[in-house]
Design a binder for these strands. Structure first.
Lengths: 220, 220
DNA sequence: ACTTATTTTTAGGTTCATCTAAAAATTTAT
DNA sequence: ATAAATTTTTAGATGAACCTAAAAATAAGT
């Protein structure tokens, strides 16, 4: 109920992001690195978030979101991802350009705005990077993808998302013609460097390095 | 060049707004009232804005925007008004609902975003309240309107804007069927209370109080 | 186990944007 | 023109979000 600041919202989002790719509590240092601040500043903030009942925090023990904190984090992530869809689908930005803008737009406080934006965009299920958009109630849909790197020759799958969100990775995919939604078929895997020879169905052949393949998510 | 904070941007916008409906310098007290802060806080901020070269400020003498300050104020007003068009035209909000959201959206820092939003909206010249949208270069188009209250019987004009932006005024106009773009013709003016009998062309007759008429802008 | 290294927290300080209370400048009124 | 009223500024505090440097707790190494 108490109002959460711009900065507090960013911490919640960051705690969620770190927690979702490991298990156990999130460390102060990990947060300091992600938020580009110092550990001492993080400790300050953790006390405030704990006072507001948004995280479980015991000193020296790391931190975990409360139910309320997780719900809040997910509504912010929902806003972020909806704005990304808007920027790409409606304004024609590239998927490598939208992160910074969405970081700001996500903090605009209006539930009605989010509701209408969602309808305007036709209730998208995924953002331009293939990440699922949390529900209005603050739940993360669970999607199970495989990495392209885990496929074996002759397997075919649809490109669904990326693990690396950096502009340089996304631009590299653009340059290769690897677009979400494409169907790819693995022809060969080099036993030397694990690079893959794949075909973008129907007929576009290309090599994909292991570094790329392990950051590409596929369905099926 | 130096980065302007959210708060500084709001002061610039407010200085512009007050200056544009009076002549001479803007007073500390007027700013305190508009920003809902205390005069002492305003004085603090004025020093900072003066240091950044955004205002002309001599103590006890009131304040005036520099060219740079005015350009900045107008780019913020441009963003505000473009977002209002988006919210009304694309998301279907009422013109009485969009001010608060636009207050937040206007601070999102990306020139490219504004450029693309403007194109997406088809380069609108006016916001949903009939206020002109400053140019990308930071110039306010000058439009000259009359007040409906200044028309005399048998004159006809097009509703172009409002002076009062309050939700209650706008809702009242909605309830009366007074929409921007409508053509109205003045039939009679009461010498008692200056209320007007007008016809929304072609055939919708209604009474308009002087309080309403003096806050409605018409063209021609 | 005990010393060393790492992580985390405390202590004390800074900046931004605000506040209250009191002092100074300006304006108004008699 | 001088006193009274108003406006504006200074002085000193506060809270949020950060910082550095040092202390304390935990984890790791031999």
């Amino acid at each position: 109920m108490a109002t959460t600041s711009f900065t507090e919202e960013n911490y919640l989002k960051t705690i969620y992001a770190i927690a979702s790719r490991q298990q156990g509590e999130v460390s102060t240092n990990a947060l300091a690195e992600m938020t580009a601040t110092r550990a001492a500043s993080v400790t300050d903030m953790l006390k405030r978030l704990a006072d507001k009942g948004l995280i479980h925090y015991k000193r020296y023990q790391g931190v975990r979101l409360t139910d309320e904190g997780e719900r809040l984090a997910l509504t912010i992530i929902r806003r972020h991802r909806l704005w990304e869809v808007f920027l790409v689908d409606k304004l024609g930005f590239g998927w490598d350009q939208v992160h910074e803008m969405a970081e700001e737009l996500e903090h605009v406080r209006s539930d009605e705005l989010v509701t209408r934006l969602d309808a305007f965009l036709n209730h998208p299920q995924f953002d331009p990077h293939g990440d699922p958009i949390p529900t209005p109630a603050g739940l993360m849909p669970d999607v199970t993808y495989r990495k392209l790197a885990d496929l074996v020759p002759t397997e075919e799958a649809c490109l669904m998302g990326v693990l690396d969100h950096s502009a340089s990775f996304l631009q590299h995919l653009d340059a290769c013609g690897l677009t979400l939604g494409s169907v790819v078929k693995v022809s060969e895997i080099s036993s030397f460097d694990r690079s893959m020879q794949v075909t973008i169905v129907p007929d576009q052949a290309l090599f994909v390095s292991h570094d790329v393949a392990k950051n590409l998510l596929v369905s099926e």
